[in-house]
Structures are given as C-alpha cells and as structure tokens.
Design a protein around this nucleic acid. Structure first.
Lengths: 214, 214
DNA sequence: TTATCAATCACGCAAATGCGTGATTTTTAA
DNA sequence: TTAAAAATCACGCATTTGCGTGATTGATAA
C-alpha cells in the first residue's frame, strides 16, 4: 500500500492554519504532519528533525521572512518537497518570483478545503494546480516574453547578417560565411544600424537579443 | 439580462464535435452557434458572415491548416474572441506555440463535457483554464527562461562593466562612467572574456544576455 | 604567513570597426 | 512603366578593439 502524503503548512493566520490542517487530516490519503506560523520556525524544525514532507503549503505574507524568500531555503533543506503557494497576493511580481523560485502550484485563499486537498493530489501526480486567474497572468507573462518584435522591417539579408553578428563573427568572417565582399557586409551592417537606430555592434546585438528580432 | 456566450467549435472528429456541441447547448448560458471540421471552413464562414463568437474551441490536429497556424488568422478576423485549445497534443512545442499565438486556455481531450463548459465560463470571467499537467509544463518553461546563470564567478566589478558593455558603451565611455582609467577597464574586459571563454565584445554581450548573467 | 585573487594602471601594435561618400544591378511595389 | 527599396561592391580614415606583456596595491583564504 502507498504511504500517506506528508504535508506541512506555513501560515501565520492561526484560524486558516488550523482549518487547513483539519481539512487535510480528514482525507484518508494525506496527513498534515506539522504546521508553523512563520518561516523561521519551519526552517528550524525541518533542519533539526530532518523532516522531508512531500508537500509544503506556503503563505506569502508571513511575518519576518516572506514566503518567496523562504522557497530557496526550503528547497535547500528538502529538495524533493513540492511547494504550493496559498496566498491573497495575486500580483505579477509575487507570481513571477514564486514560479521562478520553483513553486509547483499557486492557489488563492478563497479556495475551498476540498479544493486544497484536490490540489495536493494534483501536485503528487505531477501537475501544477493554479487558480484560473493566476494561470491567465502566467500565460500573459509567458507570451509577452516570447513575442517576436517585427517593427524594424529588416530585410532577410539583414536579419541573416544580424544573426551572424549575434554569433560573434567579424565582418570578414561573415563575408566568408555567406560569400560576399566584406564591403557588402559593411554596407548591410550600416543599414541594420540605421534601422535599429544604433551606432555600434554592441547596441545592435543587445537590441536584437532583448527584443527578439531574429 | 446578460446575453448567451456564443461558442464555435473547430474539430475534425465528428463524434467529438457533436458531443461537444451537445454538451454546450445543454447549458443555459452558453450556445454553440456553429461547428466546423477544418480551419479553412471556419475561416471562410467567419469572414463571410462576419461572425464574432465569444469563444472558439480549437483542436490542434486538424486536416490542412493546423490549429496553431489558425490562431493568428482567427485573431485577425475576430480579435475579441477567446480561443481555448482542446487537444491530445501536450508536447512543449505545441503548448509553447499556442500560448505565444494567444490562446486563452489549454485543455486535453480527456476532459468531461462538464469540464469544458466550466472552462468556458472561466475564460469569460477572465481566467485561463489549463489542464494541471499543461500548467506544469508552462511553469517549467517559464522558470527555465528566467533562471539566472551564475556559473562564471564574475566579480562585482566585472558584472558592472559587463552591464555597461551590454548597454553599448565603449571602453572610454565606461572609464568615464565609473571613474577609472581606460586601461583598467580594458583589463577588466580581458578578465571577463577569459571567464566567459570568448574573444570578442559581441560574444560576451550575447552570452551575457542569453544566459542572463546580470 | 604566504600565496592567490581582485582591482588598479601602463605602452604598443595589428586588426577591426564606424562612417563619409560614392557606384551598379536587381527586385519589388505603386 | 517608373520609382523605391534591396543587394551588391569600393576607398579612405579616425577611432576602437583585442591582446602581449608588464607593474602595484590590497584583501582574503590556505
């Protein structure tokens, strides 16, 4: 038989903490083995007891060390634990930081006890439960990071040469690479600079990569 | 009274198409106004009828034009329509492309009719319903894009100068900027090159931006 | 305590870069 | 058909870059 899923809770609000604990312990497959009111308390206990929970339910708005700051520390002490954020903070910055720090789920505090328990199961099955509005934020952030700018109307040749510049080639190397005179390459590079409104290779390369021109 | 949510379906499998349509029309707040077996058929109809659905349920594996290719075309004809992907394809590439093209949701075909109807409501409420495993993929892709590499052990001074290089400054400009001799700047740049294992400013800048060294 | 590393500064030179100022041909759009 | 853009090639020159080959001063770790 499969052993129970071990959960710990880090949440400063005592009422919420207790109700979460209660809800979890009602389920036959999950058990809340500990609950803490601060990150520091949790870290201390985990370290001294060498605790390795399957799931850590984590609030962001904690006294002292914030939930976000806590994530890397928790990962250090117990790398296999999956972290689920449960918070009222749904701003881009917190969502971004939590995900980058390695959270496996991001839920809002309006979720039912039943929803929490289901989310824990989803994480154990390799999923990443997310509030639908959080998911929307993630999708938007993701898309914004990957839109290819196309506003400089570079020609195909110019894009080709810009790509070679990004790869670190000199004019001569580029010329050899695409069988052109280095004068022609020079000419193309000037046109690229004009279109990108820069005056140096460095700026052109930075702009090309940062604004995903290729 | 609020008007009904208008949905169209683009799905080549006739059985699934019909069962989706049926499930949607059972709901009192949603109605399926049309269903198509191919992207081309849908585009033609939308254009000629000037159809503006609230939601488009879209399969990826379509005959002819794929669902992914279809997204920009649909957005062109009806920019306000929200697109929900319903597919069996859960590979990174399809997920990535669908999101970047502007999908508002990504569901798998194992979802119940009820789940589909709920997802439509979520999108209408500004959310982005996602299968939990898809969400996991998105989270991982998102995180991977934003991890800061730190494996080159650049000193603070070197990072500072590397940042100025990325900004397109010359040695002289950097020297003026941080009140150093241009010789010193030159020396730092050489050390940066050595640590990054490059031999040109271009390569250093590319590496710095692509691998998020700053 | 000693050695390593970071940070600072210096000279010289071959190569590369950025730009002014041209030209010719081909392709594309009006 | 005609004008505009793209692609090709050329010379010269001031500036910048990359690198060889040094030195000195601190801080920090072995």
């Amino acid at each position: 038989m499969m052993s129970k899923t071990d959960v710990i809770i880090i949440e400063d609000n005592e009422l919420l903490r207790d109700s979460l604990k209660e809800a979890i312990n009602k389920s036959s497959s999950i058990s809340c083995i500990n609950a803490f009111g601060s990150g520091e308390a949790a870290l201390e206990f985990i370290e001294s007891e060498e605790l390795v929970p399957d799931i850590i339910l984590l609030d962001i708005g904690l006294p002292g060390m914030s939930g976000i700051e806590l994530i890397p520390e928790l990962k250090k002490l117990s790398p296999s634990s999956k972290i689920i954020i449960i918070t009222i903070h749904d701003d881009d910055e917190n969502v971004f930081n939590a995900i980058c720090a390695g959270a496996s789920g991001y839920l809002l505090k309006d979720l039912s006890s039943n929803g929490i328990v289901n989310s824990i199961s989803e994480v154990m099955n390799g999923g990443a439960p997310m509030n639908s509005h959080i998911a929307k934020k993630v999708l938007n952030m993701f898309r914004d990071q990957n839109v290819k700018s196309s506003g400089y109307s570079l020609s195909d040749r110019e894009k080709e040469i810009l790509a070679l510049l990004v790869d670190g080639l000199s004019k001569k190397q580029i010329a050899e690479n695409i069988f052109l005179s280095h004068h022609t390459v020079d000419s193309h590079i000037r046109n690229i600079y004009a279109k990108l409104e820069v005056h140096s290779r460095s700026s052109a390369i930075s702009k090309a990569i940062k604004e995903k021109l290729l």
